[in-house]
Design a protein around this nucleic acid. Structure first.
Lengths: 253, 253
DNA sequence: TGCGGCGCTTGATCTGCGTCAAGGCGGCCG
DNA sequence: CGGCCGCCTTGACGCAGATCAAGCGCCGCA
């Protein structure tokens, strides 16, 4: 692994001037273990992988890494947005991808080994976690089953995304809402009561509609006598109808 | 896991009466190597992984595997649809997922090791390829870098899907079309000529619109002098405008 | 040669959802 | 206490894209 030698200057242990560099607090750690890539790790494996993990704060415009640097680290965004971009031969900047909260970046190139194919910089105020790929590499060598478990959860993630694409492309807004409600209902302690665990505008963007539309859809379900709306709690009056609407939305929407 | 005992009869190694079981022809092989999971394999690795791969034909309703069987194989659908489903305690069948052409299934559970958590059966006339997980396992042990390459390409696939979700949710139909065309253009030998490698109704569903809409969108691009449409070939007259439309669709759509 | 089917196009119409705008309601702070 | 602000709701309107329907060219087949 030649490129290890080239990263002399920017060692993650040495805080960059503009970027605060701290070990992980508990909340950040929670966000990390919820990521699909780490969800299957044992406590031991996790401590190996996180040996040199560090939380960083970036101001708008701050650089995370530059195109052509050896890909020794990968990153998890916890808040804000990071843009991955190239500079074209003409000097124009071309945005390849925007990375939002909860998403990893540069993990693919780390796995492949090589150099960052793009620049990465903060769009706005960004918090992220950096991982030394070497640590993950060590964990994979020490723990023979780990690679399989990780590949398994990556495969599951892929299935989940493909599914989401199907649902986005096909169903109507009303269907997506009902689907979402039934999801919540399944895990709720009380089969008659749904707790939206976020303000309605967040729910709206989660299912891909504007707050006004969500409001109208809920009103329709209420008018049909299917449920009652009390702020963040929904009282289900007719669960069977609710499920029926999923199959045949034309009866209601 | 009580239900394990119920799977006595149907072992996947024994060909079911209605399902032809053949080695891979060249065309099928092509479809296999194009899959993200195998795209990074060397010829040697590929021959190890495909050692016991076999093409199968299934009639509507034929079973691929049953819930509770040991997950020794995973599958790639080459045509038709497979449904993954569970039987609820009440005897009702609940469809978990539909798997279409080009998609893998049961690969996640193979990686994790364990038992199929669902039943799998053909919806219509289905062609698929079955892989012995043991072969992949062997390849991963023989070829130390392979796991990393595969994880890399899985990570890339995840990024691609997340991206696609963003595009589906945000852009207009026109933008999605242009985006798709530029994608084809990037990999085309001739920068003035795009070959749609499928009938237009397939392209339409790929970008999430009805054939009529696709037809109208292409007509608009033609009227604007940006391209000419000749069946499955598009002649690009003004590539710069095409790119410009992506940024600012209001000029055209 | 004629006919039926299929893929594509085009026009007319319908509709779901976004946008804009105007309140209502509760919480927080001066 | 009063005023402001954020969140939610409701109405009016517009538009992109779906749906319905008709017509065209092409091909396979009788």
């Amino acid at each position: 692994m030649l490129w290890l030698r080239e990263m002399t200057g920017a060692h993650p242990d040495r805080p960059a001037p503009a970027a605060a560099h701290r070990p992980l607090d508990d909340l950040t750690r929670m966000q990390v273990v919820q990521n699909y890539l780490f969800s299957q790790l044992t406590a031991d494996e996790l401590s190996t992988v996180l040996a040199r993990a560090a939380a960083r704060q970036l101001a708008p415009g701050d650089t995370v890494f530059r195109q052509g640097e050896a890909a020794a680290h990968f990153f998890l965004v916890t808040s804000g947005q990071v843009r991955l971009y190239r500079i074209s031969p003409l000097g124009e900047e071309k945005i390849i991808e925007l990375i939002g909260p909860g998403a990893l970046f540069a993990e693919a190139v780390s796995f492949m080994g090589g150099y960052y194919p793009v620049h990465a910089a903060a769009v706005d105020q960004v918090r992220l976690v950096s991982f030394a790929f070497e640590d993950l590499d060590r964990a994979l060598h020490e723990s023979p089953g780990l690679a399989f478990r990780m590949m398994g959860s990556m495969a599951m993630r892929i299935h989940g995304l493909v599914n989401e694409i199907d649902h986005l492309a096909s169903g109507s807004a009303g269907q997506r809402l009902v689907y979402y409600l039934l999801d919540l209902l399944r895990e709720a302690p009380d089969p008659q009561r749904i707790h939206l665990r976020a303000p309605k505008n967040v729910i709206a963007s989660r299912i891909g509609v504007k707050p006004e539309t969500l409001s109208r859809l809920l009103a329709r379900l209420k008018d049909a006598g299917i449920l009652e709306v009390h702020d963040e709690w929904l009282q289900v009056r007719d669960g069977a109808r609710l499920k029926a609407v999923l199959e045949n939305p034309s009866t209601l929407f």
